[in-house]
Design a binder for these strands. Structure first.
Lengths: 115, 115
DNA sequence: AATATTCATCGTATATTTACGATATAAGAT
DNA sequence: ATCTTATATCGTAAATATACGATGAATATT
């Protein structure tokens, strides 16, 4: 049980799901907003505004890095993060095409009965 | 540990995270696409196209119901599901404003150095 | 050189998610 | 009335996610 079946779904669905998962925790949404507000942030600034410990924030930052949504560089004792706009744009497009496809169907079926 | 800190984030961030979580598994993305392709589906049709057992699909359907993304009605021995376009549109807007805000910042900061 | 700062990582506890088979329930078919 | 079909729910196992304190590593300060 709890065998991983994700490989059995298509690539597009997996990519959309992976991005959604990256932003499926309010801490990660808040981190992305915090960074984008100032263009870039050092880790400590993010820890300051979140209600989480430094180690937990670091863990969330790592997940955003793994998802490719942010990039980070070390500057002295500090770590500087900023948004990877290119990856962000790519994901935004994925979402839009998902929603737009859905929207098109919605329009096509608007007059039919629905359950 | 593993205390839930989600209440300490703001409502907007939580709503965005919750929606993202609803579509953070490829099975749920595939279910939404399957339903929208035909406007509505009975449960059995969905089970047929997914590489998962009936009970697992039922569980994913329940999550989509809880998130408000689909609605379902019982028709005889069958269950009929369709997309809740209104909720879907609301969530799409939430995403768009998230991305657009980010995009605006990106444009504003385009010339500055980033890490 | 010794100490302090900043942050990532490790270890660990708990909670949640994912997945399935078995079972229950309710309607339809025989 | 009995049997079949369709689906939700229960119980459960395993995997993953969330959170923290402690520790490590690397740079900066004294």
């Amino acid at each position: 049980m709890a065998i991983n079946k994700k490989e059995e779904f298509n690539k597009t669905d997996n990519e959309l799901a992976d991005f959604a998962k990256a932003i499926s925790h309010p801490a990660r949404v808040a981190i992305l907003k915090t960074i984008s507000r100032k263009n870039m942030c050092i880790c400590g600034e993010i820890v300051e505004v979140l209600p989480l410990s430094q180690s937990t924030v670091s863990q969330h930052l790592k997940e955003l890095l793994n998802a490719g949504l942010i990039v980070g560089t070390i500057e002295g004792t500090k770590s500087c993060y900023c948004i990877n706009w290119k990856a962000f744009g790519k994901f935004a497009n994925g979402f839009n095409s998902f929603f737009n496809n859905a929207k098109t169907k919605a329009d096509a079926f608007r007059k039919e009965n629905c359950c």
